[in-house]
Design a binder for these strands. Sequence first.
DNA 1: GGGGTAAGTGGACTCTGTGTCCGCTTAGCA
DNA 2: TGCTAAGCGGACACAGAGTCCACTTACCCC
Lengths: 218, 218
Amino acid sequence: MSDEQRGRPSASVHRVGGPLGDLQAPQDNPATPRRRADAVRNRAQILAAAEQLFTEHDPRTITMDRIAKAAGVGRATLYRSFPDPSSVAVALLDEHERRLQGQLIYGPPPLGPGAPPAERLSAFYLAMLDLLERHLPLALGAEVGPDRYTTGAYGFWRVHVRTLLVEGRVSDPDALIDIVLSPLAPELFRFQRHGMGLSRDRIASSLTGLARRLIPPG
Amino acid sequence: MSDEQRGRPSASVHRVGGPLGDLQAPQDNPATPRRRADAVRNRAQILAAAEQLFTEHDPRTITMDRIAKAAGVGRATLYRSFPDPSSVAVALLDEHERRLQGQLIYGPPPLGPGAPPAERLSAFYLAMLDLLERHLPLALGAEVGPDRYTTGAYGFWRVHVRTLLVEGRVSDPDALIDIVLSPLAPELFRFQRHGMGLSRDRIASSLTGLARRLIPPG
DNA sequence: GGGGTAAGTGGACTCTGTGTCCGCTTAGCA
DNA sequence: TGCTAAGCGGACACAGAGTCCACTTACCCC
């Protein structure tokens, strides 16, 4: 069974892929026999229950057992779809991230193509900030160990940022990509926002300022 | 028993403290009865064994049990000094970080006082990169959950960076501190260095470039 | 130097979560 | 309506966390 079917999106899906990889549901693949109705229903129950759990409790306390209990399914059923709690969060987060990914490629400027790279980077920062603001528990739940960098979504952000950096004529863009993305780490956002009590706007201003300095206008 | 004695350095130790907090050993405190020789010996054994474990194995697989076994002590003895594996790594890392902390305050420029803030920030980036390069396993082992931001050492780096940002006349320095520090996350360094195969020098160049752009010369 | 005392020690024990296995159920199809 | 295998879920074994308590021994005092 592929990783995608098991809930943890494979890197290739978002990695770059022409038209956004496969945005359609997995079962559209003719090679896949067709998923049973009860399995589909269970998966939906799991996702719904998990979203609530992650939102209402400390993401680090969410175990496979709790998710299964909350979804009203057995442990093995849960394991059939997801290997661990963070992959459930990743799947959930995925839906929200895909919308942004679509906007980055096809949407209107400054998020989409057409605006100067510095402005697009600023817009990207702001959009990611919104994503974090709205779905912080999921973003935190999706972070287990070095998962942040191996997740398909991170690969997508990398490709996007790289494009902007190249377009902006910075030197050695490849060495700068992950530095540009580092202020968007969920754990960091949480610390700034709730530990330090910074407002969304102050963080946003700092990030747009950073974008402006990183990519010289022109 | 204080946190410091239990291995996890309290925030105040590094936070800023006049002469570097208390750099001398804990037992110099007259209020502390005096530690028994066997306890001191055990602690040293634990640290030595743990350093080797963290260096030679995946930091995430290091358990309290393994450390105790490797050090030749019982589990409870280990728990007496450290609450979890990451705090052992923190204690180990601490020794190396204190040297750098001393240099930042008392050392010669550009690391210490005297150089323009942009240059001092660059020097700080390079020194931190060296620390990561040399002690990456410990740095990774010290990272469990949101510990990065609650550790005493992180507080020290914050104070230092804040000073430089204020001196460099950037707008809203407090919102920029953690953004400036974010590219130094151990997990990120690991990804850049070993996942992406970037050389130390390319990362260094990107960071010094970043420092130059963030703090305008003058 | 010997005895008292409390700090220190270490193994055993419980608890929680993980991951797998296997017999039962039931959806999908002919 | 009956067949078949995908899907299901409880049970099980295992690993690591954290605690407890009876034993040991370093240190202090006489």
